[in-house]
Amino acid sequence: MPQLAIPAIITAFAAAVTWSSLQLELSPPMIVGHSMQPRVFPIFLMVICIVLAGILAWQYRSEPPEKVKLEGLRTWGSIALFVVFYLLTTYVDMLIATAVVVFLMCLLWGERRIYVAGLVGLVTPTVIFFLFDTVLRVRFPRGLLTNWYYG
């Protein structure tokens, strides 16, 4: 029953949130008064979620959804580049991370001219950096390049 995968995932998520809500502290009655404990509202939402997931499952059984095509290299590659961006930003430098990811994304998406990809990778983060640094006075996180720039 592959069409039931989505309702099942939603139900599992709702169950996990409900369990997590039940672990929340209880507030003293004098603070809450006649209102709700902080855990009640999320649980209430998850009950609605489970009911809606049930209706979705019923809809899918009577009218199965169209099969979703598996994504190609570009989509999964782009998601992998998000991870590369995270790692490079955390351990090297945000600007270097942006330049590398923009360059690789250009190539991944089919840009054959390496110099164009290189130019886009170099110019884009540089322009955005100086725009934010000088006009908006944003201070970027410390890293290889920003350490050198900020001194």
Partner: peptide, 18 residues
């Protein structure tokens, strides 16, 4: 698109940080 969307990525990531 292979040039446009990487630029959007950079704008989105740095803009969110800012």
């Amino acid at each position: 698109l292979q040039v446009l969307w990487p630029v959007v990525f950079a704008l989105a990531a740095i803009g969110a940080y800012a």
